[in-house]
Amino acid sequence: MKFIFYFLFFFVFSACTKKPPLTEQLTPEQLVERGKSIYTLNCIACHNADPSLEGTAGPAIRGASLDLLQAKILNATYPASHKPKRDTKLMPKMAHLEKEIPALSNFLR
């Protein structure tokens, strides 16, 4: 039992040491790299791992504008002038990614 306690204690505190970097402090290359990680960790269950290809539930999104990313990620809507590639409305809001939108935008350019 003591072993389990120390084991959990170690992981709890090792987890508390990491802080996400501020995107404003990243170089363009680092921003693309971070965008790629965020995309892989949050988007490829629906979009293709290669964003220029169609995904299982989401369309190709290479070249998506910052406006489109903000509207879809923060509000699950489209910018007024945008014509959706698919009319399925499957994507939920992913507002927790708000700070990562600049990185995603750089990766998807």
């Binding site: 084991f7 992981f11 990680s37 960790l41 949050n42 939920p92």
Partner: peptide, 18 residues
């Protein structure tokens, strides 16, 4: 339907261990 906010800083080792 309720996406988990995963980032490169997420400690997946700790999640797996606990």
């Amino acid at each position: 339907h309720l996406p988990l906010p995963v980032t490169p800083e997420s400690n997946l080792c700790a999640v797996t261990a606990v």
